[in-house]
Structures are given as structure tokens and as C-alpha cells.
Design a protein around this nucleic acid. Structure first.
Lengths: 279, 279
DNA sequence: CCGTGGATCTCGTGA
DNA sequence: TCACGAGGTCCACGG
């Protein structure tokens, strides 16, 4: 059966499946298949999966996903840009996907299909993600009071090279302050990472492998010399252990209200849109 | 149309889709849908996606994946265990998935379906992954010569608590040696991590937040006192930067041949299988 | 091409 | 439940 946009067969023979698959692949269509198969993968690692029923998706950019009955993750896959070959061999249909960049091969051997379809997905919409670290950052940049009343931002830059803090500035008392922004709950790992950046920033030098090591040596100086410089981790929340570590490292934690961030972001965005349209 | 294992409709009306979806969900079947929809997500972050054609999978454990025409990753999703509600509202069919643990809501609003099916996937096969870190570890445990000729293993344990090295032992010269195993190419991150473990092991204490900090202070001792203790990172390869850092930290890199590992693993596995069957 | 860090990461494991 | 580390992680970005 065939319509403009979709071609499908329910319980096709292997030959029917072969023809439909070849057609779908050559036309770069979205392929959906369900059936009994086994799988071999070899590349960065290697895996085997014996006979069972699974669902296969092949996308219009040649990415491939093989899903089992349960679980969020695909059991086997191939990222975009792999090369397919399909062949009939005895009573099996073999789909081979090869990815050159990692020298990875995926073989899916089908014995029968429950369902096979290919279709074109018309989808030009833009995906909008909110509450990303980027957005949080923009919100703070346009409204430093979110950090602390009276805070003045000196520098703000997305992390281009390793070891640069998100914000530097002066607090209401005029103390030099360095800020690391995290969009989600801070754990000990995040504290350590933040500490590295903040230490590096204190010394105002690029972090190469030498500086990474040295950054850790500043720990004692940090604590002993007192708060000549404030180091702040700004995030929605922090774990108990992370808080302990932050305290030991002389870092402060500043709770950031995400909903306030969102409001500030909307405002700043509106502002820039108005600017652009020359109002 | 209906068979034992699959129920599907091509280009169903919204009411047909509604009934088939309800049936599929209540029977915990694998649902495959393609159609025109828009999406709202809100939880740890928030996202919006306007009208476009996508493919929806709902799995037998209530995990959900929404895929666009291209890209390996799902554009929106819900991990296993979420709760579904489906309703018809005006000229739309709304699928809502709510995940309590993270307070996340996903709304998919369909205007029309190109394809809708639900089926049961019979799949009891076990997924075998080879060349995992675990397997590499087993290979080395059963054949320490893979590390270095004459190496004697003192302790070997999977990392149960943070900061415990993979292997400790004595080299052919009788020097105490600590080994961190990595399955793949070592980068600077892996070196830093390894250094933490190795330092912690030297001091033979569990790494709590205090020890994490102290571990870095041992750097100078490590270097100044010379190689009273050897620290080895064992992996298939290492990047130039990672090698520099490792050298600066007084760590050695030991290339591990994965194919040799594999052979050793097969042998050790055969041995234990023979044991089990009492031969 | 490598290196670095984020992700609605997911997933397992242990405390 | 949280915390931590692995992952065939994938992905974007910079050099």
C-alpha cells in the first residue's frame, strides 16, 4: 500500500522488506521496522545480541537506532552519516551500517518483519530550550541583582578556554568577586571544577597543564589569607557534601531562583528584540 | 486491522488513534506513532517545539522517545516509569507523560497521525558487551603480565568506594605499584582522576572531601621523593596533553593491547566455565 | 583532527 | 533517596 508520504507493509516477506528498505534508503526516508533480529556490533567496543523482537529506526540522515521493549536507551545504534548496505542471504535480511570515522560496523540480521514502513517527515520547526546554563547566564548578565543586591559585573564571558570564570565583579562592599554559574544542583564534582576555575582566575593566568596543578596549591593561601577575594558558586541548589567541600575551600554558595532567572531572561530578550526592530 | 501481535492503523482519525493508544497503553505494548504534533516539556529544564512531523515511541516500561527526521538523539523524551494520560481536546489528541521523581511533564499535541501501531516485542536475549572496562580488568587480573612482565598483583578490586585503585602490587624489581585501568584513550581528565585515586591509595585512606583536597597536596611529595611508589595508568592509548600531565604528576603510562586482553579474557572465562562444570 | 565540558544526559551501584 | 562514575556516551565549540 502506498500514499504520498508513507509506504508500509505489515508482515512483509523478506523480499518485500528488501525492496522497501532499498527504496527507503535510496530516497533518504525515515524507516521504521519491527521484527525478529540478532545484532553484532564492532568498533570502539564490541557487542552481541541474540534473537529477539526489536524496533529499528533509520533516520533521514542515516542515523540508526535499535530499540528493545524497555529502557530509554537504544541497545545498538549508529550516529548520523554512516553508510548502509542491505542484502538477502539465505533466509535472512542483513542490514549493515558502517561508520568510517570510528571504524564501527553494525550488523542487524532480520529473520522476519512484523512491520516495515518508510515515510518523509516534514519538520522545519525550531526547537527552543529554556532554562539552559546559557539562558541562566544571560539572565544574570542583564540583571546582576539576581546574584546579590548591588553586585557590579566587571567581566562576563562564556567559557571559551578552560579555566575562565563565568563572571567577575565587585560586591556591594567593593570586594573583588568571582562567580561560577551552574544551572543544576551542585555536587562535589562541580565544586572541584568551580574551584579550579576560580583559583585560576585569581591568579589571572591561562590554565595550561601547569596551572591546573598549581590551582590546587592555592587552596591553603585561599583559606589562610581570608576573603581578599570572594569565590561564589551560583546554582539552584547544592548537596550537603558539596556544601562542606565548598566551605572547606573557602567558596560561597549562592542560591539562584530559576523562575526569577526566567523572568529576567524574558525581559532582556524583549529588550534586545525591541532594539533590533529599532523601536 | 489486527493480528495476534500487532495492531495498526494507517492514517487513523484522531478518534481511532485515541482508542488504539488507550488500548496500547493499558496493555503495556510497544507503541509506534508518526504524525503532526507540537511539544511542550517542563521539568529540570523546559522546551517548546512547534508543529512538525515526528515519530513517537512509547515502550513497554512507559519510557517515551520523540524523534525528529534527523539526529541520533530524541528531541524530547521521558525515562521509564512515567505516567500517561491521553485525551481528545477539540481537533487535537494530547499525550501527557508525567514523571514524579523529577516533576517533569511532557505534552505532545497531535493534530494528525500518519501511522499508528502497537505491538508486543518478545525479547528475552541477553545483551553481551565486550571490551568493557570490566572485561579488560578481568583479563589483567587473570594475566598480570599484560601490565608488565613479572608483575605480582597484591589487591584487585572494582571501584566500590571512591579513591580505591584498580590494582596494587609489586613490579619485577619489588617496587610497590598502583595501577589505574582505562578502557579507552586517556585524556587529561582521566589523568587527573587517576591521580586522585593513586594519591589517595598511597595514603591508604578513604577519600572523603578532606582527602580529595589533600590528594592534590601530595603532588609535590610525589615528585620530590622520587618513585618510592610507582603510579601507572594502563590504557590502549593516551593523548599528547594527557601524557604531559601524567609525566608532570609522576605517573607512568602503560599501553595495553586490547586484542591481547580479549584473548586473555576468553581464556580466563573458559577456565572458570570448566571449573563450574566440574571438569 | 584532538581536547574540553554540558546534558531534561541515562544507568548502575553502594551507602 | 543521594552521590559518584561509566558510557560504543552524543554534541557543540575552539584550536
Amino acid at each position: 500500500m502506498l500514499t504520498d508520504s508513507v509506504a508500509y507493509i505489515l508482515q512483509p516477506t523478506l523480499e518485500e522488506a528488501y525492496n522497501l528498505l532499498r527504496e527507503g534508503l535510496s530516497k533518504k526516508r525515515f524507516i521504521i521496522a519491527a521484527g525478529l533480529c540478532r545484532v553484532e556490533y564492532s568498533g570502539r567496543a564490541a557487542s552481541k545480541l541474540e534473537w529477539g523482537e526489536r524496533v529499528l529506526l533509520i533516520k533521514q540522515d542515516n542515523s540508526l537506532l535499535l530499540h528493545r521493549a524497555k529502557g530509554f536507551e537504544a541497545v545498538n545504534w549508529q550516529p548520523p552519516g554512516s553508510i548502509f548496505t542491505v542484502k538477502l542471504e539465505g533466509d535472512c535480511l542483513i542490514i549493515r551500517s558502517y561508520r568510517r570515522s570510528h571504524q564501527e560496523t553494525l550488523n542487524i540480521i532480520f529473520k522476519e518483519f512484523t512491520l516495515l514502513a518508510h515515510l518523509h517527515l516534514a519538520d522545519e520547526a525550531e526547537f527552543e530550550m529554556h532554562l539552559s546554563e546559557e539562558e541562566m547566564y544571560e539572565a544574570i548578565a542583564s540583571n546582576p541583582d539576581l546574584l546579590e543586591p548591588g553586585f557590579r559585573i566587571l567581566s562576563h564571558q562564556r567559557r571559551l578556554s578552560a579555566g575562565v570564570a563565568d563572571f567577575t565583579g565587585y560586591d556591594s562592599q567593593g570586594r573583588y568577586t568571582i562567580i561560577e554559574v551552574k544551572r543544576k544542583a551542585v555536587d562535589t564534582r562541580a565544586v572541584k571544577q568551580a574551584y579550579k576555575y576560580l583559583s585560576a582566575e585569581v591568579k589571572r593566568k591561562a590554565v595550561d597543564t601547569r596551572a591546573v596543578k598549581q590551582a590546587y596549591k592555592y587552596l591553603s593561601e585561599f583559606k589562610e589569607r581570608g576573603a581578599a577575594v570572594r569565590g561564589i558558586i551560583a546554582a539552584p541548589s547544592i548537596s550537603v557534601e558539596a556544601m562542606k567541600l565548598a566551605a572547606a575551600l573557602g567558596l560561597e554558595f549562592k542560591k539562584i531562583d530559576l523562575s526569577k532567572c526566567r523572568v529576567a531572561y524574558q525581559k532582556s530578550r524583549k529588550g534586545s528584540l525591541l532594539e533590533q526592530s529599532g523601536v
